[in-house]
Amino acid sequence: MPYPKGHKIKVRNKIVESAAQAFRTHGIHDVSVPFIMKGAGLTHGGFYAHFDNKEQLIGEACRFAISDTIALLQKAADQEKQNPKINTVIDYYLSSYHRDKAEMGCIIPALSAEVSRSSEDVRQIFTHEVERMITFISTLAEIDTSKGSALFSTMVGSLVLARTVNDPELSDNLLSAGRQYAKELVRA
């Protein structure tokens, strides 16, 4: 009995979503294809019916995760009625919730160090996704991309450091300082 129309796309999307969550949480190198497939509720054997290799999946997962993050941040911005929308995005991005929920958060701070040592194909996709985030941030803040790059770099760096330290007070202070400086950067 044949599968219904669109079945293969749905299965592929489940694999990509599982990979994005796994990579956000555990990084690239510590996540195996069987782990990803299990997270999607599938067996390892079906992987190659959808992807040529893990690197292709990494690229797809990065695209999916950035689209997901942009949609989430846009939704938060759209709900803001009074403050500049970019402040709402900065507050969300540099929140304790985003820090503590890496599996649902922005993939850029989660994978940057690993991607720098990945293949050129993966780095090219990641570069495009970073540029897409910078464009989103710049447009929302109504600033040029040079300033948007500085803003997004501040946001990513603050989040990475807040996730890295094991002192909760220092972590909170890093987020707070990052929020304050990011908002000042937009106003400057």
Score class of each variant (00 low, 15 high):
V11W: 02
V11R: 07
N13W: 03
I15F: 03
A19N: 06
Q21P: 09
Q21S: 12
Q21H: 08
F23L: 02
F23S: 01
R24W: 04
R24L: 09
T25K: 10
D30E: 06
D30N: 08
V31W: 00
V33A: 10
I36P: 01
I36Q: 01
A40Q: 03
G41F: 00
L42G: 01
T43P: 07
H44F: 08
H44P: 03
G46Y: 02
G46M: 05
A49V: 06
N53L: 07
N53Y: 02
E55M: 14
L57P: 05
A65C: 11
S67H: 15
S67L: 15
S67N: 15
D68H: 12
T69G: 09
I70M: 06
A71Y: 08
L72K: 13
L73G: 00
Q74W: 10
K75E: 11
K75Q: 13
A76H: 08
A77R: 05
A77F: 02
A77C: 03
D78I: 04
E80P: 03
K81W: 13
Q82K: 07
N83F: 12
P84V: 05
K85N: 11
I86V: 05
I86L: 14
T88L: 14
T88S: 14
V89T: 02
I90V: 10
Y93D: 08
Y93C: 12
Y93V: 12
H98W: 09
H98F: 08
R99P: 15
R99K: 15
R99A: 11
R99G: 06
E103G: 07
E103T: 14
E103W: 14
M104Q: 12
M104T: 11
G105A: 07
I107F: 01
A110D: 05
A113N: 07
A113E: 03
E114S: 06
V115H: 00
S116I: 00
R117V: 01
E120W: 07
V122H: 00
Q124P: 14
Q124I: 14
I125H: 10
T127N: 15
T127H: 07
E129M: 07
E129H: 01
E131D: 14
E131H: 15
R132A: 14
R132T: 14
M133N: 10
F136S: 03
I137C: 11
S138Y: 06
T139N: 10
A141G: 09
E142Q: 09
D144V: 13
D144N: 13
S146Q: 13
S146R: 15
